[in-house]
Each structure stands twice: as C-alpha cells, then as structure tokens.
Amino acid sequence: QLNAMAHQIQEMFPQVPYHLVLQDLQLTRSVEITTDNILEGRIQVP
C-alpha cells in the first residue's frame, strides 16, 4: 500500500526521489501529510 501511495505522490512531484517519498510515508502513512511535507520544504530534495 505504501508503494502505491509513493507512486501517486511521485506523479505529482517527479523531482522528489522515490526513496525520500517512501521514507516520509513510512512515518506519516498519509499521502496528504507527505504532500504537505514536500510543499512546505520539509523533505530535502538533492
């Protein structure tokens, strides 16, 4: 299920590496919260 959620987020934010999306999802278990984390700059994109 997390993989499906990660792919959904990757479609919206292809610039964010998959492993970072998955790592955040493991903590949040939420597409909405992880999306917010990306938008708020809480996930550092190399």
Results as ranks from 00 to 15, higher is better:
Gln1Met: 12
Gln1Leu: 13
Gln1Asn: 13
Gln1Phe: 11
Gln1Glu: 14
Gln1Cys: 14
Leu2Arg: 03
Leu2Glu: 04
Leu2Phe: 09
Leu2Ala: 04
Leu2Pro: 04
Leu2Asp: 03
Leu2Trp: 12
Asn3Tyr: 13
Asn3Gln: 14
Asn3Arg: 14
Ala4Glu: 12
Ala4Asp: 10
Ala4Trp: 12
Ala4Thr: 09
Met5Phe: 08
Met5Asn: 04
Met5Gln: 07
Met5Trp: 15
Met5Tyr: 08
Met5Ala: 07
Met5Val: 06
Met5His: 05
Met5Thr: 04
Met5Asp: 05
Ala6Asn: 01
Ala6Asp: 00
Ala6Cys: 07
Ala6Leu: 08
Ala6Ser: 04
Ala6Glu: 01
Ala6Gln: 03
Ala6Val: 09
His7Ala: 12
His7Ile: 12
His7Pro: 01
His7Phe: 09
His7Arg: 15
His7Gln: 14
His7Cys: 13
Gln8Met: 14
Gln8Asp: 06
Gln8Leu: 12
Gln8Pro: 02
Gln8Glu: 10
Gln8Lys: 13
Gln8Val: 11
Ile9Tyr: 00
Ile9Ser: 00
Ile9Thr: 02
Ile9Cys: 00
Ile9Pro: 00
Gln10Phe: 13
Gln10Leu: 14
Gln10Met: 14
Gln10Glu: 05
Gln10Tyr: 13
Gln10Arg: 13
Gln10Cys: 15
Glu11Cys: 14
Glu11Ala: 14
Glu11Trp: 08
Glu11Leu: 14
Glu11Met: 14
Met12Val: 07
Met12Glu: 06
Met12Asp: 05
Met12Asn: 07
Met12Cys: 09
Met12Leu: 13
Met12Gln: 10
Phe13Arg: 00
Phe13Ala: 02
Phe13Pro: 00
Phe13Leu: 03
Phe13Cys: 05
Phe13Asp: 02
Pro14Ser: 04
Pro14Glu: 03
Pro14Arg: 03
Pro14Phe: 02
Pro14Gly: 05
Pro14Leu: 04
Gln15Met: 11
Gln15Tyr: 15
Gln15Trp: 15
Gln15Asp: 15
Gln15Gly: 12
Gln15His: 15
Val16Asn: 03
Val16Leu: 11
Val16Pro: 10
Val16Gly: 03
Pro17Ser: 06
Pro17Asp: 13
Pro17Met: 04
Pro17Asn: 07
Tyr18His: 14
Tyr18Val: 15
Tyr18Thr: 13
Tyr18Asn: 12
Tyr18Cys: 14
Tyr18Asp: 10
Tyr18Arg: 14
Tyr18Ile: 15
Tyr18Glu: 14
His19Val: 08
His19Asn: 10
His19Thr: 07
His19Arg: 05
His19Met: 08
His19Trp: 15
His19Gln: 09
Leu20Tyr: 06
Leu20Ile: 10
Leu20Ser: 07
Leu20Gly: 05
Leu20Trp: 07
Leu20Gln: 07
Leu20Val: 10
Leu20Glu: 11
Val21His: 02
Val21Leu: 10
Val21Asn: 01
Val21Trp: 03
Val21Ala: 05
Val21Arg: 00
Leu22Glu: 06
Leu22Trp: 09
Leu22Arg: 02
Leu22Asn: 00
Leu22Phe: 08
Leu22Ala: 04
Leu22Tyr: 10
Leu22Cys: 08
Gln23Trp: 08
Gln23Arg: 07
Gln23Glu: 12
Gln23Gly: 07
Gln23Pro: 00
Asp24His: 01
Asp24Pro: 05
Asp24Tyr: 04
Asp24Val: 03
Asp24Thr: 00
Asp24Cys: 09
Asp24Arg: 00
Asp24Ala: 03
Leu25Met: 03
Leu25Phe: 02
Leu25Pro: 00
Leu25Gln: 00
Gln26Ala: 10
Gln26Thr: 11
Gln26Ser: 08
Gln26Phe: 12
Gln26Glu: 13
Leu27Cys: 11
Leu27Arg: 11
Leu27Gln: 11
Leu27Ala: 10
Leu27Thr: 11
Leu27Ile: 14
Leu27Glu: 10
Leu27Ser: 09
Thr28Cys: 06
Thr28Gln: 02
Thr28Arg: 00
Thr28Val: 02
Thr28Pro: 02
Thr28Gly: 02
Thr28Asn: 03
Thr28Glu: 03
Arg29His: 13
Arg29Val: 06
Arg29Glu: 08
Arg29Cys: 14
Arg29Leu: 13
Ser30Tyr: 03
Ser30Asn: 08
Ser30Phe: 02
Ser30Ala: 04
Ser30Cys: 07
Ser30Met: 03
Ser30Glu: 03
Val31Pro: 06
Val31Trp: 08
Val31Thr: 06
Val31Glu: 05
Val31Ile: 12
Val31Asn: 06
Val31Leu: 10
Glu32Asn: 08
Glu32Ser: 11
Glu32Pro: 07
Glu32Gln: 13
Glu32Met: 09
Glu32Gly: 08
Glu32His: 08
Glu32Phe: 07
Glu32Leu: 10
Ile33Gly: 07
Ile33Phe: 06
Ile33Lys: 14
Ile33Glu: 09
Ile33Met: 12
Ile33Asn: 06
Ile33Ala: 13
Thr34Ala: 01
Thr34Gln: 00
Thr34Ile: 02
Thr34Met: 01
Thr34Pro: 00
Thr34Glu: 01
Thr35Ile: 15
Thr35Asn: 04
Thr35His: 06
Thr35Lys: 12
Thr35Tyr: 07
Thr35Cys: 11
Thr35Pro: 01
Thr35Val: 15
Thr35Met: 14
Asp36Tyr: 09
Asp36Cys: 15
Asp36Pro: 01
Asp36Phe: 12
Asp36Met: 15
Asp36Ala: 15
Asp36Gln: 15
Asn37Ile: 01
Asn37Leu: 00
Asn37Tyr: 01
Asn37Cys: 03
Asn37Asp: 01
Ile38His: 00
Ile38Asn: 01
Ile38Glu: 00
Ile38Lys: 00
Ile38Tyr: 03
Ile38Leu: 07
Ile38Ala: 02
Leu39Glu: 05
Leu39Ser: 06
Leu39Met: 09
Leu39Ala: 07
Leu39Gly: 04
Leu39Ile: 10
Leu39Tyr: 06
Glu40Val: 08
Glu40Gly: 11
Glu40Pro: 00
Glu40Ile: 08
Gly41Glu: 05
Gly41Asn: 07
Gly41Gln: 06
Gly41Ile: 04
Gly41Thr: 03
Gly41Ala: 05
Arg42Asn: 06
Arg42Gly: 03
Arg42Trp: 05
Arg42Phe: 06
Arg42Asp: 02
Ile43Lys: 02
Ile43Glu: 02
Ile43Ala: 02
Ile43Gln: 01
Ile43Asn: 02
Gln44Gly: 13
Gln44Thr: 11
Gln44Asn: 10
Gln44Ile: 13
Gln44Phe: 13
Val45Gly: 09
Val45Thr: 10
Val45Tyr: 13
Val45Pro: 09
Val45His: 09
Val45Ala: 11
Pro46Phe: 07
Pro46Ser: 11
Pro46Thr: 11
Pro46Met: 10
Pro46Glu: 13
Pro46Asn: 11
